[in-house]
């Protein structure tokens, strides 16, 4: 059975946690395609971040390229500001193995050297395969690999959860 969460409450919570950590006049924000960009657009607007929003497609930095090849519909990454010396807020929808974030960090460093990167995710579902953690997460779950958790959007945004195992809010 599918269950859904009220996304506005989750985004409210991300907004509150980030407000305490950032200076909207000096920080920059980057969303990861596709779901991370949807969440980042909302946060960018609500927090009043002065610099335009950056968008990252990490396909060229994936560690499974030699197995799965190139997806033809890779979006171009757009980072319309200098990341050198910045406090960069990296936004994604679901944090899972950590491989997407690893790829995103590599790509960000090809644009420059931020002073600090803060990772904000809508859902942290555990099951990490790399030593990466979110600074801010609206929802932390203990999930099973067979669970299906996906953000759908952009209008409206909804979080789909199809349990293949036990659900336990942490």
């Amino acid at each position: 059975m599918a269950s859904t969460w009220d996304l506005s409450i989750l985004i409210d919570s991300l907004q509150r946690d980030l407000q305490a950590r950032i200076d909207p006049q000096s920080c920059v924000m980057v969303g990861i395609y596709t779901g991370g960009v949807w969440i980042a657009r909302e946060l960018h607007r609500r927090l009043g971040v002065a610099a335009p929003l950056g968008e990252l497609d990490i396909s060229f930095y994936r560690d499974d390229f030699s197995r799965v090849g190139l997806h033809p519909e890779v979006k171009a990454s757009r980072i319309p500001f200098s990341v050198d010396g910045s406090h960069l807020i990296l936004v994604d929808d679901v944090l899972y193995t950590g491989r997407t974030i690893r790829a995103a960090l590599n790509e960000i460093f090809d644009y420059g050297r931020p002073d600090r990167i803060t990772l904000a995710v809508l859902v942290d579902r555990g099951l990490r395969e790399l030593p990466i953690c979110a600074d801010v997460a609206a929802l932390r779950l203990r999930s099973n690999p067979s669970d299906y958790i996906k953000l759908r959007g952009p209008n409206p945004l909804s979080l789909e959860f199809l349990p293949g195992g036990e659900l336990a809010p942490a």
Binding site: S59, R62, K75, A76, R78, D110
Partner: peptide, 16 residues
């Protein structure tokens, strides 16, 4: 189209 953007960056290189 997506590779076109790589040439506009400071680091014009991707690891694939």
């Amino acid at each position: 189209e997506s590779f076109l953007g790589i040439g506009e960056r400071t680091v014009k290189k991707i690891p694939i």
